[in-house]
Design a protein around this nucleic acid. Sequence first.
DNA 1: ATCCAGGAAGTCG
DNA 2: CGACTTCATGGA
Length: 276
Amino acid sequence: MKITTQENKIIIENPIDFNIIHILDCGQIFRYKIFDNYAVVYSLDKKCVIETMENKVVLNTEDVDYFYNFFDLDTDYSAIKSNLIKQFNLVNQVEYGYGIRILKQDPFEIILSFIISANNNIPRIKQIINRLCERYGEKCDDFYAFPKTEILFNASLEEFESLGAGYRGKYLYKTVQMIKNGDFDLALPYELNSEKAKVYIMNLYGVGPKVADCILLFAYSKNDVFPVDTWIKKVYKDEMLKENTPFNINLYLKNKYGNMSGFAQQYLFYHRRENK
DNA sequence: ATCCAGGAAGTCG
DNA sequence: CGACTTCATGGA
């Protein structure tokens, strides 16, 4: 896999560790569109158009540096995948989702998005996030940016509740107010280890163990967390329960996969969800 | 109509 | 702590 950059392009030749469908459909991001011959990804106020061709992927964007980091292009996923196969025998999962990469997304956008995701379904999560962007986000060329933090500081509880997010409206409001009041520092989790960062993030209203793990993995690049959702519980019950009978699935999986937890979770999640 | 969707907060023992 | 209930919304 060879990566080169131009002024408004990132070109990936021989993309054995990059498949935009895998990346977008493995549950880490909600603002994207997939068409027949290309896909579009939005992050904050930025946009990237991904063209997949024969033996080549081209990322078209005005923010090359941002999306180079966003797609984590400095990380060797071939090494990660062979590691997962050798250590944990995740052959089928890695082959199926061979092009998965864990994105480096913005903490504020991820926190609000995954608060909305709790006990919700994907189409409706996307709908609510889009509504949030349309109402409070800056109008960019053909889309709305994710709202700037300071803009949402002024949004009332009633405004959040009118997003159609149900009881999550008050979660969003209180979380934004905590950030506004300085009770939560968006930059701090970068500096903490996963365990401490998780406790810290769970201070946010509407953030429990699973959402906290997603925030740590998708925004703060903590690879040693293992988000346990309904799909992972299915995998666990079907394939792993016979190995052991631990009391805490999250702890069991985190200990089993260690620093590979986040990666293992993504391949397991994607494989399980796409195969009914 | 009932159930469910990438769970979390509230309550109780 | 651990188990148990409630919580909006919309689609199947």
